[in-house]
Write a protein that binds this DNA or RNA. Structure first.
Lengths: 418, 418
DNA sequence: GCTATTTGTTCAGTGATTGAATTATTTGAC
DNA sequence: GTCAAATAATTCAATCACTGAACAAATAGC
């Protein structure tokens, strides 16, 4: 009689359902089910899981196979009597996503297929700070072209690309600010328009999405651990500190796509001045420069990308100043994370980027602050763990975001090949 | 060639689309369109807006009219030649939502019809702190019964109820903690099971949802201003400080429904101890008690519900200690809000509850902290405004949450009456 | 009074799903 | 070794809801 459940509202589906939409929706449902299954499911298993009839599933699967989105695997392990099932798997020779990344000291490209496998991965180290945006993008196009050749050699078709940059990106792909690269108002799509296209045009799939690195790294984490939590906070600690917020399996980008600036959450309202103009931002206490300074290390001594490694080595060797620096950083991070958890009620915090290596030392103080400051900590434990992917989380997440889009809405790809 | 757009992922629609779903989905689409239209639309206008044919819309509308969800209004103002349209409106004699609230010093009930009109509203003042949860709920049932009689007299059928409580509620309706009521682990549905049901059973609509007051107040704000922003932060300042987070028109409840505890975001990590066990929580700087103390007022002097009024009166009279207290509270609130905006990239903050009256004095310091501390403040102005609803936001939001659910998914109601 | 215009309904046609029947393939029992 | 049971996948007539065009209704303007 008195049943209870939470107040939720289904997302406003403005789109009317026309006759043909039925098939379009079921293509996505069946493909999504095949993608989510732990082992290659049979048509009958998909039917049972989705509630569709086997006849419908067969018809839908035929379309998916014809469109090179799904393939049949060898007979799955038998369980008893009966005709053996034919396992359905996401095609390894269909569309793939191209992930790209421009960071302070490297460029990277990778290709991920529908099944989520990384089929190509290149990193080219170079200090990009003295390089103009146009030249940096030109070099990146070189990497992308090589990735494309490699992908096509493997029978894959690049259907879209996503570029990770360490900065604020608006909806049009304009990089408003990437302080560590020294970029300001760089119109990436415009600068790339001189180059040949990187991917095959596919209706419904943007040729290029430019996105904040921390956001894509969070998606990479989702991708690397499909059975993990669907809502979590992914904190990337580099020179700056960025966060990607994943809610119900989707990236939360904010009203303008500028969410996740956890590095500028105040942790000491009247504390150290930050170059953003604020006072006491988290970045000034837990950013790479702050940790290095507190540990007594000169930043000029070592390239940015080895800072975390160096700190981890010193900490592992019980270097007192480093341990103290990490404890202080972890405490500041914990204060910010406690605020976030109080606000959003997340139960998982993933430490990524440079923090991944430092998790053994950062985790205890973060957990201490969380358990002290989070109102609901008593009933609901918060997990703090290290990223499953390493520094490549952002590129992999970028490529994964493309295939994720295809799986969620395969109609564009299917209409391409007819 | 180089089109760009954000990385978004459509929500995972696990549900397969069966044959009948087509109609079910279009019932919701058409009903939603009628609800969203600024003036009663014709069938032809709905068809044009949704992309369905007029024939389909007519058929769907017939079902909706038969189910008492939609009615026809008198001819809308003419625009030119042609057969006059028959305007479609949400029925004022169909299902309605029952909103309930238990707060520190009052009980409230209200009824909202499909169109969003408040058709009944009662508030009964009483100090609930010395009253046992069972007795408080018994009194509430009395209010609810009166509301039901009034609703049925007006031809309405109560299809569901939502109860707002100032505390943490889990998914089963158990109130884990409501400090200001003195409640702990109160199983509301169980305590209500002795009473006759408050509403007609409707498939798909929970008879009772228990939810945090701040969350429902945020929904009330969404309800009061349907053309307003679809993503915003609603901060209710009472004895405690709670926030409701609305993202894309839906309440964000967090993993366990305990989101919005903005009152325990640290604003001075080593500052004043809070009864939550943390240090320097926002509540200790911008909560009602902190403001009263800073203004030199004794809390015992005045009932809790008049504290905001009293402070507003004193501030309007330029009482120096009150002005200083509000400035300090506003600054602390601004620090917390700046952190939230950095994290979530929201562009609207609504001050509700007791803060609504104090907005003229709180807004300037909040805005100052936001513009100083939010990284993207330069490109994206943040609006800070007062709640459109007064203290009744939570009850109205509670009732509105029920009708919102019916509009978003009318199938349950329609299957009830056949 | 006639025409143009817009609204809303009717109706045959179509596409996709449905459910039952059928075929295919293997396990296990007699 | 053969047959029955079991499971997988396909085939096919029936059904349901949307489509598009034709039609009826109602009004403004000439």
């Amino acid at each position: 009689m008195w049943q209870c459940q939470g107040v939720t509202r289904p997302a406003a589906r403005a789109a009317a359902v026309r006759q043909g939409s039925l098939r379009e929706l079921n293509l996505a449902v069946v493909l999504g089910r095949i993608a989510a299954a732990p082992s290659p499911p049979s048509r009958a298993a998909v039917a049972a899981a989705t509630g569709l009839t086997r006849a419908t599933v067969s018809a839908v699967v035929d379309d998916l196979v014809a469109g090179r989105l799904v393939g049949e695997s060898e007979p799955a392990p038998r369980t008893g009597a009966g005709r053996p099932a034919r396992g359905l798997v996401l095609a390894g020779d269909g569309p793939a996503g191209l992930g790209l990344e421009i960071n302070v000291d490297y460029l990277a490209a990778c290709v991920v297929d529908l099944a989520g496998e990384v089929r190509h991965h290149t990193v080219r180290r170079a200090d990009l700070r003295p390089v103009s945006p146009a030249d940096a993008l030109a070099r990146l196009v070189g990497l992308a072209a090589a990735a494309r050749v490699d992908a096509e050699r493997q029978g894959l078709t690049l259907a879209g690309a996503a570029l990770a940059v360490p900065g604020l990106v608006d909806a049009a792909g304009l990089v408003r600010l990437a302080p560590n690269l020294g970029w300001q108002d760089v119109p990436v799509p415009e600068l790339l328009s001189d180059h040949p296209p990187l991917v095959e045009p596919v209706p419904g799939i943007p040729a290029l999405v430019v996105e904040n690195e921390a956001n894509l790294a969070a998606l990479g984490e989702l991708h690397a651990d499909p059975d993990g939590p669907v809502s979590f906070l992914h904190v990337s600690g580099e020179v700056g500190i960025g966060a990607g917020i994943v809610l119900d399996g989707a990236l939360f980008r904010g009203v303008r796509g500028w969410s996740g600036e956890i590095g500028h959450i105040p942790v000491q309202p009247e504390g150290r001045p930050c170059r953003c103009g604020g006072l006491g931002c988290l970045e000034r206490y837990a950013g790479q420069e702050a940790i290095l300074a507190a540990a007594g290390l000169d930043r000029a001594d070592l390239p940015a990308d080895t800072a975390a490694t160096r700190l981890a080595d010193l900490a592992a060797a019980d270097h007192p100043a480093t341990l103290a620096a990490l404890a202080e950083a972890g405490q500041a991070l914990g204060v910010a994370v406690a605020g976030v958890v109080n606000l959003l009620d997340l139960d998982t915090v993933v430490l990524g980027g440079g923090y991944a290596l430092l998790t053994p030392w950062l985790r205890p103080p973060v957990l201490a602050e969380v358990s002290r400051r989070v109102l609901t900590a008593g009933w609901s434990p918060v997990t703090v763990r290290s990223s499953a992917l390493g520094p490549e989380a952002a590129v992999v997440g970028a490529a994964g975001s493309v295939v994720r889009r295809i799986v969620a809405d395969p109609v564009g790809w299917l209409s391409r090949t007819g």
